[in-house]
Amino acid sequence: MPEYVGSVLLLLGLLQLKHMFADFYMQTPKMLCGRGEYFHMGRAQHAGIHALGSVLVFLLFQAPVPFILVLCVLEWFVHFNIDYCKASYSDAKQLMPNMAGFWRAVGTDQALHHFTYLAMVWAWMEYAVL
């Protein structure tokens, strides 16, 4: 296997591991309540944890700092809005965990976040790898 393939897989795996911890282990009650309103400080903090985790991952890969800052600000914005759309939709449909629609919303949300990581890895390969 070419060396860069291993690097790509490791980077993607670390971003997914970061995602698991940020989404499922590190959310506070403030981050979880009232998420249907757009300007929600808890959601901003949650997206910030994701962005900070990505900063750490890309620092491990010795990506240039300007690249990291731009990429992670974009990740913050995208993550914030994906979560808002899921919360807004779930609130409008009054979805609960015992409903199939709830899990479709969660699955769509998670897929969009992971597509974001694919885009971030692509950007790393395109703009940061020398």
Rank of each mutant, 00 (worst) to 15 (best):
M1I: 06
E3T: 15
Y4R: 14
Y4I: 14
S7A: 15
V8S: 10
L10I: 09
L11S: 01
L12S: 02
G13C: 08
Q16E: 11
Q16L: 15
H19G: 15
M20R: 06
A22L: 00
F24A: 00
F24L: 04
Y25V: 06
M26S: 14
Q27E: 01
T28R: 04
T28H: 01
M31R: 00
G36S: 13
G36K: 11
E37K: 14
F39C: 14
H40N: 13
R43L: 02
A51P: 03
L52Y: 01
G53T: 10
S54F: 04
L59P: 02
L59Q: 14
L60A: 12
F61E: 08
F61S: 08
A63H: 07
A63C: 07
V65W: 10
P66D: 03
F67A: 00
I68V: 12
L69M: 12
V70A: 13
V70L: 08
L71E: 15
E75V: 11
H79E: 03
N81G: 06
I82Y: 11
D83S: 04
A87Y: 01
A87L: 05
Y89H: 14
S90H: 02
K93F: 10
P97L: 04
A100H: 13
F102A: 14
F102S: 11
W103F: 11
V106P: 09
G107P: 09
A111Y: 10
L112M: 12
F115A: 13
F115W: 11
F115Y: 08
W122G: 04
W122F: 14
A123P: 09
M125V: 11
E126Q: 15
